[in-house]
Design a protein around this nucleic acid. Structure first.
Lengths: 142, 142
DNA sequence: TTATGTGCAAAATATTTGCTTTCCG
DNA sequence: CGGAAAGCAAATATTTTGCACATAA
């Protein structure tokens, strides 16, 4: 379901009339290879090491494309910058309010909440997102 | 606890070395008088009806001041604009992905979640925020 | 009186877009 | 070859800030 090889990846894009460019692959690889939930700027910095003349616009465009394909998800935290995650399963995040680190929360997503909102508010196709924030161990120990 | 009269409001600000200006009061009144969770622009538009030459900068500055005093809270949704709420109790929100309306969710906040994250992740002073999103009745009926 | 706040405009931040050139398929 | 994508820069959108003047206490 999550294509790994170049071949499968290429096909996955082709089905949607899109190409697998080198830039696109690098950006996806970066996200798949980290758990740090990087921002667009961070992805850009990382991509630049492999493609020195890559542009920030290309990074943003590809992040949006990958999001559109459901290959990555965008995390919108209180902070003004979006962060991206190649783990598209429904899981929660904690953000440290001091160092701005974002980590996955190992907590089973609270089941049935979406359904409750659909029932009591009359909404449809409801999803939800939970963001925890606090001070991480490194920050409060140091 | 939530000062209403001019007198008490004035004192509440004074304690923090702040003044109760007309602009500040109008902005707070606007937020206290609506359940629509307006954005800064919306507050600005509303304030302008009462203070024709009020500036957007003043609105932003006061929203931040009021937030700092804990008199209002800022809601950061996936969308790129912040919205503001004079109801500072811990409650959840739903946003309609079609018309962008934001409503309170009548659901008791899931207790104990913050504590669980503190225990299993080692964080401190954890709070959380839940945002539901879906299609509101008006949008899917129409 | 005087420090805090306002209005205005310019700056800062984050992201998107137009256009020409490049390159995937 | 033809259309999708890249690179670059200019444009947007939202929020913040510097400064001279006004005002609450």
């Amino acid at each position: 379901m999550k294509p790994k090889g170049f071949q499968e990846l290429q096909e996955a894009f082709k089905d949607q009339g899109m190409r697998l460019t080198y830039q696109r692959k690098v950006i996806l690889d970066i996200l798949r290879g980290t758990k740090s939930h990087p921002s667009a700027e961070m992805v850009y910095a990382s991509a630049k090491r492999r493609i020195p003349n890559v542009s920030l616009g290309t990074v943003y465009r590809n992040l949006n494309v990958l999001k559109g394909c459901g290959m990555i998800q965008e995390l919108d935290f209180g902070s003004s910058v979006s962060r991206y995650d190649a783990n598209t399963s429904h899981h929660y995040h904690v953000r440290c309010i001091r160092c701005d680190k974002v980590e996955d929360v190992d907590l089973s997503t609270v089941a049935g909440l979406d359904r409750q909102v659909e029932d009591c508010m009359g909404y449809r196709a409801v999803t939800h997102r939970v963001e925890f924030q606090g001070v991480c161990p490194e920050c409060w120990k140091g």
